[in-house]
Design a protein around this nucleic acid. Structure first.
Length: 551
RNA sequence: GCGCCCGUAGCUCAGCUGGAUAGAGCGUCGGUCUACGGAACCGAAGGUCACAGGUUCGAAUCCUGUCGGGCGCGCCA
């Protein structure tokens, strides 16, 4: 049906005035087409689906919106026949469609037939996408800021993959540069009972490292490397505990400096060949200003050392050479000033800047006693991922961090989170899942299997309003996934999951499943349970949240 | 000073590639009540969508400005 309506909208539009032969008129079509929507209205009286097509097309067709809506509705009625119960023209010219029960039942049957693949795929074009996320400095534990990044990057990867993209997942390890030495110096100082150097690293974990490694070596660089290795192991286990699906690769910054030519040397050579670099004050610069940056950036310092930027460019070039059409980097808010230069460098290397998406995660603010508290790494003051998990558990933590858009600063009050974790909506969703599992168990596997084969062509009689509402919610799933994927917005899946759980609960309240008479009704409702259960589980799965059978 | 993000109900946040009476969870108040799982359900109170202009048939949504908050502006990583 939706396809039919979409086609009609297209056709109606094509019937409009022929595009003028001016260069300016031709591209006007796209925005018009894009502004036509087919949506599920909030209010039942506005129908099962509603479109603003007539409002958008009226000016081009030279008729009033209501008149256009009437014509469009008539055409749809003719085409859809009994599937469309009726249509109404409302307000300024909305076309509201009321679908028949038989159409909804058939659509549910199709959804069930699609099985676990319902809502999967559909990405056009399907791309080879690399998602780089977390990439926390290995000089400290994973804190809640990283946790948000991890949850987001992980969920986004799952959503993109489900939508049909081929997704690679990487963690970039900053294991080169002065910070590692500084890390080593801090550890050595603590091991010797000396004060930690200025802007060094502090905190209980550093002392622990000092106890663990301090006697092995006196070389700060070596000590730093050993400590990084320990930290990486801990990060990895924290992330695994948090349900972050494995990374396909841990990309080491240090490895970008190895080999002949090293990836960094290779990339610098490319940039030089393109004439994008120059020497000044003894340093090698990249003309990022040619690609929209505020000022040019140093690649090789006058002392001969590469900047972090040089490594990062080489890393992105490496990813491109490995065949990814698109790169998504999930960065912390403190990196937003870095976006322009990275995009500039990417373009300087011949990449399309639109294919490099640098997504900025806004901060997680810690709140104590109603006041914002700062997370200072230097002072070793932060809530770690491990602590968060110990307080509220994986599912509540993931939900808390994923239910919000990535570009909103979120407040995290640990005390409040702990107190309210039992009220976390994630449990409501999980409860609905467990309840369905229980209902289906009561019906028994044979009964469920029989019910599923009976859906197509079944006539359970007039549908209850709650059944209709639930079916429409289930049918919306593919669109929700597509939106979440295209807008890089996994939080929409959380909103959908909650809505679905509420829709199911309303159905459960109003419609008896096991024991419903006649048998065709019971069958249909069992099938509805199966579909609901699958999609709740799928939605939770995309968020990396468990879908328990019982709780 | 410049740049990016944000400002929606008491709290935490959706909605923001423009649509019809702005939503959810929590909290508050009042009900339902032994259910195929009550971690439930129903109802109510609660909003000048920071403010001011502009574009539009229509603006929480787009544009400009102001105010407020956050984060950045290194030959650091």
């Amino acid at each position: 049906m939706l396809g039919a309506a979409g086609e009609l909208v297209d056709r109606a539009h094509d019937k409009g005035p022929a595009p003028q032969d001016t260069g300016a008129a031709a591209p006007a079509k796209a925005p018009v087409r894009a502004s036509i929507t087919l949506e599920r209205p909030r209010r039942a009286e506005f129908g099962d689906y509603s479109t603003n097509a007539a409002l958008v097309l009226a000016p081009a067709l030279g008729a009033s919106p209501r008149e256009v809506a009437l014509r469009l509705g008539g055409a749809l009625q003719e085409r859809l026949g009994a599937s469309l119960d009726r249509f109404e023209v409302a307000g300024p010219g909305f076309l509201n469609l009321f679908l028949s029960d038989s159409w909804l039942i058939a659509a549910l049957g199709d959804a069930l037939d699609a099985g676990e693949l319902f809502g999967a795929g559909g990405a056009t074009p399907a791309e080879h996408i690399l998602v780089e996320f977390v990439s926390a400095n290995p000089t400290g534990p994973v804190h809640v800021g990283h946790a948000r990044n991890a949850a987001y990057g992980d969920a986004l990867s799952r959503v993109l993959a489900f939508h049909g993209h081929e997704v690679g997942r990487e963690f970039y390890v900053n294991d080169a540069g002065s910070q590692v030495r500084k890390f080593g110096e801090s550890i050595r100082a603590l091991a010797r009972g000396e004060p930690v150097p200025e802007d060094g690293y502090q905190g209980a974990y550093v002392e622990q490292l000092a106890n663990q490694l301090g006697r092995d070596s006196t070389d700060p660089a070596e000590l730093g490397r050993a400590a990084v290795s320990v930290m990486l192991g801990e990060m990895q286990s924290s992330l695994v505990a948090f349900g972050v699906m494995g990374f396909d690769r841990w990309a080491y910054e240090s490895s970008l400096h190895e080999g002949d030519p090293s990836p960094v040397a290779h990339t610098l050579a490319l940039l030089e060949e393109q004439g994008r670099t120059y020497r000044r004050d003894g340093a090698l610069w990249l003309r990022t200003t040619e690609f929209g940056d505020d000022k040019d950036r140093v690649l090789v310092r006058s002392n001969g050392e590469h900047t972090y930027f040089a490594s990062d460019i080489a890393y992105h070039q490496d990813k491109r050479e490995r065949g990814f059409d698109r790169q998504i980097d999930v960065w912390g808010a403190d990196h937003h000033g870095y976006v322009q230069r990275m995009k500039a460098a990417y373009e300087a290397l011949g990449g399309d800047r639109e294919h490099l998406e640098l997504l900025i995660m806004q901060l997680v603010h810690l709140v104590r006693a109603g006041e914002r508290a700062l997370m200072s790494k230097r002072a070793g003051e932060f809530v770690t991922l491990d602590e968060l998990l110990a307080e509220i558990g994986v599912d509540a933590a993931r939900w808390y961090l994923l239910a919000r858009s990535h570009d909103t600063t979120v407040d995290l009050d640990l005390d409040l989170a702990r107190e309210q974790s039992n009220e976390n909506p994630v449990y409501y969703v999980q409860y609905a899942h467990a309840r369905i599992a229980s209902i289906l168990a009561k019906a028994g596997p044979e009964r469920v299997a029989a019910a599923l084969t009976a859906v197509a062509g079944s006539e359970p009689g007039p549908l209850h309003a709650a059944e209709r509402a639930l079916i429409e919610l289930l049918l919306a799933f593919p669109v929700e996934v597509a939106e979440a994927a295209e807008r890089r917005a996994p939080h929409r899946i959380a909103a959908y999951a909650l809505e679905l759980a509420q829709g199911f609960t309303a159905f459960y309240r109003d419609c008896r499943v096991v024991g419903a008479e006649p048998e065709s009704v019971e069958s249909f409702r069992i099938a509805l349970c199966v579909a609901s259960r699958r999609l709740i589980a799928r939605s939770l799965g995309l968020l990396g949240v468990s879908a328990p059978e019982e709780m």
